[in-house]
């Protein structure tokens, strides 16, 4: 059993218990969100002289790993561990103002935020929204840096604390605290001739909408195929804008897929299945997958088996919080 030391207190960490769970059991709450090692909300830093397990640093930038940063939610220490909150400047929270709030449909709103200090990002990365009571959730960035605002697509989740708050309570002019950007799901312009395949479900379109326009604005030469899926025709969104984009760019192809019954005017079926039946061989493709975790994970395997190289597969599974 390892002992963990945080904030001048020492606790016994039980076998198979994460640092986050151990602290919580003792009444010490660290900020956390996905509890799956993804969102980096529970990032902490090992004190000089102690080393976190390598597993607990998964997905962190090498610079952070080197300095002893790790994720409390996936850290199951085998040796004694002492740690502190990350430096304020490691992941600073900054204020942002809601400058626009519009509705795509009954379930999805478009929020545009104006950060009050510099916020550098690449379209497709995500940020965390912090509510004053400590609630934190991640949202992908759909806008381009040159647009001057951060666009988020927020789907109302049943009993979802943050999404219902954003839908119902937050208004134009409202202030939010954000941190970021996070994630490696973004366009890279090192191979302009490479074909791109993007598959998203629901608001998994947000990062892809950013990535597609980023690629086009950087004059990407290869084909860009976007497949967006929703369960029903009242849930799919940005259809007209994407059709227009496809009309304007001869190398951009857009397919809207509806998996439910009311699929008139759309491709019938799930976006991932339609995509793989239309493009069965993916050798040389770069692939982006965003949205429902089951779709993302099963499709990751399928596109790899279809010939895409592992290093060319970028996935952003929208982990649902279990708290």
């Amino acid at each position: 059993m390892a002992k963990i030391t945080y904030s001048e207190q020492t606790f016994d960490c039980q076998d198979d218990e994460s640092v986050l769970e151990c602290l919580s059991r003792h009444g010490v709450e660290l900020p956390s969100s996905c509890r799956a090692g993804v969102c980096q909300t529970c990032l902490v830093k090992a004190s000089e002289g102690t080393t976190p397990p390598t597993d607990a640093q998964a997905g962190l930038k090498p610079q952070l790993q080197k300095q002893g940063y790790f994720l409390a939610c996936i850290c199951k220490p085998e040796q004694d561990l002492s740690f502190i909150d990350p430096d304020d400047n490691a992941l600073p929270q900054i204020a942002a103002t809601v400058v626009s709030k519009t509705r795509f449909n009954d379930n999805i709103i478009r929020l545009r935020l104006k950060p009050e200090s510099e916020f550098e990002f690449l379209p497709g990365q995500f940020l965390n929204i912090h509510r004053q009571d400590g609630l934190v959730r991640s949202y992908s960035i759909a806008s381009l840096p040159q647009q001057g605002y951060l666009e988020l697509h927020v789907e109302r989740v049943e009993n979802g604390k943050m999404s219902n708050w954003l839908h119902n309570q937050v208004a134009m002019g409202g202030k939010l605290n954000i941190d970021g950007p996070h994630g490696d799901c973004f366009y890279i312009d090192d191979k302009p001739e490479q074909n791109l395949l993007l598959i998203g479900t629901g608001t998994g379109l947000a990062p892809l909408w950013g990535i597609v326009r980023d690629a086009l604005s950087k004059d990407h030469k290869g084909e860009i195929h976007l497949f967006h899926g929703s369960r029903s025709s009242d849930k799919i969104y940005l259809v007209d804008e994407l059709k227009k984009l496809a009309d304007q760019h001869s190398n951009f192809f857009y397919t809207a897929c509806i998996s439910g019954e009311d699929n008139q005017g759309f491709s019938a079926g799930r976006a991932n299945e339609v995509a793989l039946s239309e493009i069965p061989k993916l050798n040389g493709y770069r692939v982006y997958l965003c949205g429902h975790p089951e779709m993302v994970n099963s499709t990751k395997k399928k596109v790899f088996l279809a010939g895409a190289s592992m290093n060319d597969i970028h996935a952003d599974a929208f982990t649902l919080s279990n708290s």
Partner: peptide
């Protein structure tokens, strides 16, 4: 590595051992 891992994942004699594993880490 891609060729090899693809063959392993497509091989019904052994691919069930890899169900539910994180593909990046397995790669």
């Amino acid at each position: 590595v891609d060729l090899f891992y693809r063959k392993v994942l497509a091989d019904d004699r052994i691919n069930s051992w890899f169900d539910g594993t994180d593909m990046e880490r397995q790669h």
